[in-house]
């Protein structure tokens, strides 16, 4: 009964989820790593990404693959305003920063309600083709989701690894005081990290809007997933986010297929509690001090 076909179908669904989760969690963990802020508004930037995509793709009629990056950049640019007005006051202050980000989250969520109403809407499917590879059905939609995620993850990695600003982000995350002493422009680094983080969230939000649906309240789901992923992988780590995202996406996909969606939620929540207690640094993180 659990044929290879069924199992690989579930795995494919799991990988699609994983790709989105990693995209969300990477930005979340980047902001924590660089600015020490647990950004509770992260999910709202995903929500904005969904609505931005809907605007550029549905209302303006741009091609999906053009509309998606434009939407992400638009949200990233908007987030820089919030960075300047709100977030910058709270860098390196964990508790006040977290509470302020809760405020941003509420304001954006209900800002969304005021603009777009509370009803759920959907983004019409951009790709309708279905391929069959052996016994597995692969919709073009999923290929695009995975592809977009892979491309942006690769870009993210390249920027972080091989550019000056990427190096600056890594150094600031490692040791801010030394970074400042070395003459790194921390303000510019923060701004860039913030832009990347929210733009990735917006990309993920667009993909979620395409796969599932769009509403001002849709931000809670990606936020919770980001929590789980970064706890699995350790707050502030990049590799950890990737592994955490894969574990969560695949795990959810298998457990919810066989035991139902709420079982999957129970298990993932139970898992994070266990990890927080026994390995607060995450599964792959290293211990501090």
């Amino acid at each position: 009964m659990f044929t290879f076909a069924i199992l690989s179908q579930i795995a494919l669904n799991g990988i699609t989820l994983s790709a989105i989760y990693i995209l969300v969690a990477l930005g979340f963990t980047l902001i924590f790593g660089v600015m020490r802020i647990v950004n509770f508004a992260h999910g709202e930037f995903a929500m904005l990404g969904g609505f931005a995509l809907s605007f550029f793709y549905v209302s303006l009629g741009l091609h999906f693959l053009v509309a998606l990056p434009i939407a992400a950049v638009a949200v990233g640019a908007f987030s820089l305003v919030l960075e300047r007005v709100v977030y910058r006051r709270f860098y390196q202050r964990e508790m006040p920063g977290m509470i302020a980000s809760l405020g941003v989250s509420i304001a954006l969520m209900y800002g969304g309600v005021a603009l777009w109403g509370t009803h759920q809407r959907s983004i019409p499917s951009a790709f309708s083709a279905v391929y069959t590879i052996g016994p597995i059905f692969v919709t073009a939609e999923r290929v695009v989701v995975i592809g977009v995620c892979l491309v942006s993850l690769a870009l993210f990695y390249l920027v972080l690894r091989f550019t000056r600003i990427g190096l600056a982000m890594r150094v600031v995350a490692e040791d801010r005081i030394t970074a400042e002493a070395q003459g790194i422009d921390t303000v510019a680094t923060y701004r860039f990290a913030f832009f990347i983080s929210t733009a990735m969230a917006a990309l993920a939000g667009g993909l979620i809007g395409q796969l599932f649906s769009l509403s001002p309240f849709m931000g809670l789901m990606p936020l919770v997933k980001a929590f789980i992923v970064v706890i699995l992988g350790g707050l502030g780590g990049i590799l950890g986010a990737a592994i955490g995202g894969l574990v969560l996406g695949l795990g959810e996909s298998f457990v919810s297929t066989f035991y139902g969606a709420s079982a999957a939620q129970f298990i993932s929540f139970g898992l994070i509690i266990a990890i927080l207690l026994f390995r607060p640094q995450g599964l792959v993180g290293r211990k501090e001090g």
Partner: peptide, 20 residues
């Protein structure tokens, strides 16, 4: 009414920033 929660959010930010 529809702006109430937006105002909550803004108040939260302002209090954290200026009035701990």
């Amino acid at each position: 009414v529809e702006y109430q929660f937006i105002i909550y959010g803004v108040i939260l930010v302002v209090v954290m920033a200026a009035l701990p």
